[in-house]
C-alpha cells in the first residue's frame, strides 16, 4: 500500500505494522465487515416482513393459517437457531435446484436422489457451473440473507403477535363503534398503535441479530470470522512476506471489541428512539401510566 512497503524484511515496529495491516488480504478482511453490515441492513427489514406475515397468520380466524403461524413461532423457539442455519442453507439450495430441474428438464428420467447424491441436470444448477465466481458469492450471500430472515422472522412474529394483543381493547372497540370493518380496524388502528409495544422486543431482536451475524461463517460466506482465522494463523516465511506466530487470539479479541462497540452504540440509539416514540404516550415510559395498559405489555 505504502511506498516503503516494497521490501518487508527491512521494516521494523510501526512501519512494519502499517504495511502488515494494509496487505491485500487485510483489505478483504475489512471489506468483510461491510458484508456483515450489509447482511444486517438487508436482513432486518426482510425478517420484519416475515414476522409481520407470521403474526398476521397466527391471529387469523382461518384455523389452518393460525396453526401455521403459531407453529412457525413455536418451532424456532424449541430448536436451536444454528440448526436452522445449517438446515436451510442446504434445503433452500436443493429446493431451488429441484424447482428449476422440474421446469427446465421435464424429460429427465433418472431419480434426483441417487444414493448419497443429489443430481439435477446441468441447466438446473444454481448458479450455473459456468458462471463467474462473484455470481456464486452473491448467490451464497442471498441464501444466507433468506435463512436469517426465516429464523429471525419467527422471533419478530412472536414480538409483533404480542404487540398486537397489547393494543388496548378499547381502541379496537372504538373502531367497531364507528362501523369500521375488520380490515379497516387492522389497518388504521391496530398496526399504527402496535409499534410502540413492539419496540422493546424488536430492539432486543436487533441485538440478537447483531450477535448472530458471525454465524454467517457457518453458511460458507467469507465473513470476518473466516478472515480472522485465516489471517491470524501461523505464517511461515516461505509463504508470506510477513511471517508471525499464532495471532488468532488477537484477531478474535478485535472482533469481540468490534461487537461490543456495535451493540453498545445500537443500545444507546434504540434507547433514544424509544424515549422519542413513547413521548406523550399513555404508557409507563411516557409518564402517564394509565392503569391496565402496562399489564398487557409486550413480551
Amino acid at each position: 500500500m505504502f511506498s516503503y512497503c516494497a521490501d518487508p524484511d527491512t521494516l521494523e515496529g510501526l512501519r512494519w505494522l502499517s504495511c502488515y495491516l494494509t496487505t491485500g488480504k487485510h483489505l478483504s478482511f475489512y471489506w468483510a465487515f461491510g458484508t456483515v453490515l450489509l447482511l444486517l441492513a438487508v436482513t432486518a427489514p426482510v425478517a420484519l416482513l416475515f414476522g409481520f406475515g407470521g403474526a398476521v397468520a397466527a391471529r387469523s380466524r382461518v384455523a389452518p393459517l393460525a396453526w401455521f403461524g403459531k407453529g412457525y413461532i413455536a418451532l424456532v423457539r424449541g430448536v436451536p437457531d444454528i440448526a436452522f442455519f445449517l438446515f436451510f442453507v442446504i434445503a433452500l439450495d436443493q429446493g431451488i435446484e429441484w424447482l428449476r430441474h422440474q421446469a427446465k428438464c421435464p424429460d429427465w428420467d433418472q431419480p434426483i436422489r441417487q444414493g448419497n447424491d443429489f443430481v439435477v441436470c446441468a441447466e438446473a444448477k444454481m448458479p450455473l457451473s459456468t458462471s463467474a465466481q462473484w455470481v456464486h458469492e452473491v448467490y451464497g450471500f442471498w441464501l444466507a440473507v433468506f435463512t436469517f430472515a426465516i429464523v429471525f422472522g419467527a422471533f419478530a412474529a412472536n414480538v409483533l403477535f404480542g404487540a398486537m394483543r397489547a393494543v388496548p381493547r378499547a381502541q379496537i372497540e372504538t373502531g367497531e363503534a364507528y362501523g369500521m370493518t375488520r380490515a379497516q380496524i387492522f389497518r388504521r388502528i391496530l398496526v399504527p398503535q402496535m409499534w410502540v409495544y413492539a419496540l422493546p422486543g424488536l430492539s432486543n431482536l436487533w441485538m440478537v441479530l447483531i450477535k448472530a451475524s458471525p454465524l454467517l461463517f457457518l453458511l460458507g460466506v467469507e465473513d470476518i470470522v473466516y478472515w480472522a482465522r485465516e489471517l491470524g494463523s501461523t505464517k511461515t516465511p516461505q509463504f508470506t512476506d510477513y511471517p508471525h506466530g499464532d495471532w488468532r487470539m488477537w484477531y478474535f479479541l478485535f472482533l469481540l471489541v468490534f461487537y461490543l462497540g456495535f451493540t453498545r452504540v445500537s443500545e444507546i440509539a434504540l434507547d433514544r428512539l424509544m424515549r422519542r416514540l413513547t413521548h406523550g404516550q399513555a404508557t409507563l415510559g411516557g409518564g402517564a401510566g394509565r392503569a391496565g395498559m402496562t399489564e398487557a405489555g409486550p413480551p
Binding site: 448472530a212 458471525p214 499464532d246 488468532r248 487470539m249 478474535f252 461487537y259
Partner: peptide, 22 residues
C-alpha cells in the same frame, strides 16, 4: 455482564479457545 451480553457467544468461544491454546 456487559462483555458477555454485548458480544456474540460464537466469538467468545473462538477467543477463549485460542486464548487457552496460547
Amino acid at each position: 455482564i456487559f462483555v458477555f451480553r454485548g458480544s456474540p457467544l460464537f466469538i467468545q468461544f473462538f477467543f477463549a479457545y485460542f486464548l487457552f491454546l496460547s
